[in-house]
Amino acid sequence: KRPMNAFMVWARIHRPALAKANPAANNAEISVQLGLEWNKLSEEQKKPYYDEAQKIKEKHREEFPGW
C-alpha cells in the first residue's frame, strides 16, 4: 500500500467533521469538498501535513525497501 501524501494526511483528519456536517453527502461529494478546502489553504497552512507525509514516506521506505 502506498504511503499517504499531504492531502491524504489532512483529509483523514477533516473528513469526519465534513461528513457529520453534511450527512446527505456521499463519499465522492465529500472528497470533492475536501479537495476544494485543501486548495484554499496557504502553503504555510499545508506545511505541517507535507512534513507529516514526508515522515510517513520515510517510515514506509524503511519498512518496505524496494517497494
Results as ranks from 00 to 15, higher is better:
Lys57Gln: 15
Asn26Ser: 14
Gln33Thr: 11
Gln45Ala: 11
Pro3Tyr: 11
Trp10Lys: 00
Asn27Thr: 03
Lys55Ile: 09
Gln54Leu: 13
Gln45Ser: 07
Pro16Thr: 14
Glu52Arg: 07
Asn22Arg: 05
Ala17Glu: 07
Asp51Trp: 03
Val9Phe: 06
Lys55Pro: 04
Glu43Phe: 06
Trp10Ile: 00
Lys55Thr: 13
Glu37Thr: 07
Lys55Leu: 07
Tyr49Phe: 11
Ile13Cys: 08
Ala11Tyr: 05
Glu44His: 15
Val32Trp: 08
Ser31Leu: 10
Ala19Met: 14
Ala25Glu: 04
Lys40Arg: 12
Gly66Trp: 04
His14Arg: 15
Glu63Met: 10
Trp38Glu: 02
Leu36Asn: 15
Gly35Pro: 04
Met8Val: 06
Gln45Glu: 10
Ala28Lys: 13
Lys40Asp: 03
Lys40Met: 07
Glu37His: 04
Lys40Ser: 11
Gln54Ile: 04
Gln45Asn: 11
Glu63Tyr: 05
Ile30Trp: 02
Ala17Asn: 15
Ser31Pro: 03
Ile13Asp: 14
Ala28Tyr: 07
Tyr49Met: 00
Ala6Asn: 03
Leu18Ser: 03
Pro23Val: 02
Glu44Asp: 12
Met8Ala: 10
His14Gly: 02
Trp10Ser: 00
Pro23Cys: 04
Lys46Glu: 00
Phe64Ile: 09
Pro65Met: 05
Glu44Ile: 06
Lys47Ile: 07
Glu44Pro: 06
Lys46Trp: 01
Glu44Met: 09
Ala21Glu: 13
Glu44Ser: 09
Arg2Thr: 11
Arg15Trp: 05
Gln54Asn: 11
Ala17Leu: 15
Gln54Val: 07
Gly35Phe: 09
Lys47Asn: 02
Ser42His: 02
Pro23Tyr: 01
Ala19Ile: 11
Gly35Ser: 14
Glu43Met: 08
Asn26Glu: 07
Lys47Ala: 07
Gln33Phe: 06
Ala17Val: 15
Lys47Gln: 13
Lys1Val: 09
Ala21Phe: 04
Pro65His: 06
Phe7Val: 02
Ala11Gly: 03
Phe64Ser: 15
Asn39Trp: 01
Lys1Tyr: 04
Asn27Trp: 09
Asn5Ile: 05
His14Asn: 08
Arg12Pro: 05
Pro3Gly: 09
Glu58Arg: 12
Trp10His: 04
Ser42Gly: 05
Met4Arg: 01
Leu34Trp: 01
Tyr50Val: 09
Lys40Thr: 05
Ala11Ser: 13
Asp51Glu: 14
Gln54His: 10
Trp10Leu: 01
Lys57Ala: 15
Glu37Leu: 10
Ala53Pro: 02
Leu34Pro: 00
Tyr50Met: 07
Tyr50Ala: 12
Pro3Asn: 09
Leu36Thr: 12
Tyr49Ala: 00
Ala17Met: 15
Leu34His: 00
Arg15Leu: 07
His60Pro: 10
Trp67Met: 14
Lys46Cys: 01
Tyr49Trp: 12
Ile56Gly: 11
Asn27Glu: 14
Pro16His: 07
Ala6Pro: 06
Ala11Ile: 00
Glu29Lys: 03
Ala25Asn: 05
Phe64Gly: 15
Arg15Tyr: 05
Trp38Gln: 01
Lys46Phe: 00
Glu43Lys: 12
Ser42Gln: 02
Arg12Val: 06
Trp67Ile: 09
Leu36Glu: 14
Lys57Val: 13
Asp51Leu: 11
